[in-house]
Every structure is written in structure tokens, then in C-alpha cells.
Amino acid sequence: MSVPPPRSPATNGAPDPGRRRVLRALGLGGLASVAGAIATIRTTGYEVDPARVAKLRFLRPWQLVVVDAAAARICLADVPYDAPGAPPTPREVQVGEFIDAFLAAASEPIQKDASSLFGFLEHGWPLACGHLHRFTALDAAAQDHVLGSLESSRLGMLRGCFHGLKSMVMMGYYRDPRTWGVLGYDGPLVNRPLDGWTEKRHLPVVKSPEKQGGS
């Protein structure tokens, strides 16, 4: 049995530090503490459009810069953005603003997790990957290296952090109908006439193998 042992009487029903403890454990030998200290100091010097800052509900301006930078790499297009029919950039579909709104509505523990993650990505993990600059100051190749190292880390918790970041970014990006052209996805049916849609014969593949004589 690999699950934790039953609770002791001392902890029965008592609040559990839960993910907080785990995220603190991202320290990698104190790295998080150092990164946290740096993050506290180094939250200035970020250039953000004041109009965007004014609309923020949860993210601090420097966190928006981190989210923008991560989203730009995570959702990088496979064609040049100035090519005909190219997908929109994450900035165009306001991935950062979406994540801000998403986190503003999230529970406090999730908000804390996210804040820890942004600080760690910006200040802690680049250092662990051998980069002397913060994430947002790295060039694209180095940013990809940092993100790739997080995704493939030997520490499961770090891979989980990458997955969480990626999930928020993907939700922010692919929620926008302008990105659906990449997929060939035709979007919700609810605002379109259902003419014929309810007929079984309109489904893309409808015949069973038996009726087709087997497959």
C-alpha cells in the first residue's frame, strides 16, 4: 500500500497544509527561498501597458509579464504570425487577461499556488537551469529550455506545475474562436440552426461494421 497511513488521533480532522507544503517543497535545497526573496525585491522594472494594469483583478503587473512570456512560448504558432491565415498570438486573444480573471475567481489556495508558480518560474527555475537572468529577460531559446526543463523535470511536482501552467494558458488561448481555424473546429452548435443535425444520418460515420459487412 503506497497511500499515506491512517491519520493519527493528533491530526484527525485537523487542517492539513496540503499543497502549500508541497509547493514550499519546490525549494530544491533552498532555491525557492532564495527565489522568493529575489521575487520580493525584483518585482519592479517591468514594462506593462498601464491600460492593461488598470484592468487587473488578481495578477500583479510583473506576474502579467511572466504569464505573457510563458504563453508566447507555450502557444507559439507553427507558422510565422505574418503569414496568411496565421493563428492569433496569445496577446491578441488576451491569454494574460483570461488567466487574471480565472485566478481572481479561484479559491485562495489556488491563488497562492499560482503566485508561487509565477515567482518560481520567473526567478527560481531559470537559475536551476543554469540561466543567470529571470525568465522574462531570457531569449526565446532559453525560455523554451526553462519551460522544457520544467515539463520534463525528474521531480513529479515540477511536472505537475508545468501541466497546471500549460492548462491555464491553453484554456486562455483555445477558448477564443479565432484559434479554432487551426483545428478545423466549427464551434458551439447552440447558436446555429440544428437543421438536420439531429438526424442520425448526418453524423460523420454512422454505419456499424456489421451493417457494412464487417471491417
Binding site: 507555450i74 502557444c75 507559439l76 504558432a77 500549460k166 488561448y173 483555445y174 483545428l183
Partner: peptide, 19 residues
């Protein structure tokens, strides 16, 4: 789309290629 994008491995241009 969002669920598929989240489950599709990787990130960046290769991810979009898969999408």
C-alpha cells in the same frame, strides 16, 4: 479544443502542429 490542447503533449510550435 481546450481539453484536447491540454492533453496534447508538448508546447510551442510542435504542439500547434499536433493541434
Amino acid at each position: 479544443p481546450i481539453g484536447a490542447a491540454t492533453m496534447t503533449p508538448g508546447f510551442g510550435a510542435a504542439h500547434m502542429g499536433a493541434m
